[in-house]
Amino acid sequence: MTTLAPPGRVRAYVRLAKLDILDYYLGVLVVWSLLPADLRLDGLVLATMAIFLIGEVVVMAAMVALDDLTGFRDGSDITNYAPDDPRRRLERKPLVAGTLTERQVVRFAWITCVVGAALWLAAVAIAPHRPQWTVLVIAVTYFFSVQYSWGVKLSYHGFQEFFLAGLGFAVVLAPYGLATGALDGNVVVQALLFGMGPLLFGVYSNTNDVEGDRRVGRPTVAALTTPRGNMRFVIALSALETALVLAAPLLGAPWWFGLALLPTILMRVNQLRVGFADGDILRARRLGIRTHRVTVVALIVVNLL
């Protein structure tokens, strides 16, 4: 007789999958708002985007589960989520908290890897369009997600920051390509802006986790440079985001795009102040999450208007 997993274990799997971090999944809303008006309620387009989104959630669950497994085995998560650090929630790391075993996490990761691949293949199969560049973006995104902290361990070879932005870029471009088969400058710049969001709270996480990452040889920019060098890197990324906002009208966005995204620019300045002037890195990270969500709302409003 099949028995259901106890509620505590279900919660542990939800935390393992980081289902409370919605920020990459918001890309589908940006894509929907970018679609021509006649496609926004098209049944096949909506089905394709829904299957792609569910697949994205499952692939991301596999990625973060493998990341937790590697972080537990090399000791970096034990360092960064130490029980005596009141600012980090230990239950977010079920292996460190002891609510899941390594065997359970490995099984979960493999199941989600297979299911995620099947869902993305199904999205491609039913999509109105299947341009080669879109299929390539999906394949590369899947490979890099699974290999982020496992197998090739891309994040252990200096590609972590690039991946954080690239993943956000891909989850806008791919479903848009499946829905329309086309691409233009406005879509590209909005995909880039979307990708900057997770990057600009990820680098604050890396700043906080610098000691654990150095201990295991994980070469984030924060671990490779001095505190001043890392601060300059984060400032440069924030400036790049502002430059993208200002350049967007040259690539097809409306002339008032910069005004609509002004809250993003101001919130980034505040995030820098909190993180590096006040020295509260984890609060700055939370501000980064809120900034990304404000940016998503602004992009949707711009596109619908």
Rank of each mutant, 00 (worst) to 15 (best):
S33V: 07
C113M: 15
D280I: 02
I54N: 11
A174N: 10
I126Q: 15
R89N: 14
L244A: 04
F276Q: 02
V221S: 02
L164I: 13
P175S: 07
Q132F: 11
V115L: 15
E91W: 12
D184I: 12
A61Q: 00
L16N: 13
I289M: 07
I281H: 01
W120R: 06
A122R: 09
L39E: 07
L304I: 10
F162K: 13
T101V: 06
I300V: 15
D23S: 15
P36I: 13
G195W: 01
L266Y: 01
D68F: 02
A243K: 10
G75Y: 08
H292W: 08
A62H: 11
T207W: 14
V172Q: 11
L41W: 12
G217Y: 03
W120Y: 12
F52W: 06
T180V: 08
T291G: 05
A12I: 07
S145A: 15
D23K: 06
C113R: 06
E241K: 10
V245E: 06
D85T: 00
R290M: 09
P227Y: 09
L29I: 11
R89A: 14
A243V: 08
A65I: 09
L167C: 10
G27E: 01
D20H: 14
I51R: 00
V114G: 11
Q104D: 04
G27Q: 04
V234R: 01
D20G: 13
A61W: 08
L251D: 09
P94W: 01
T242H: 10
L224E: 12
D209S: 09
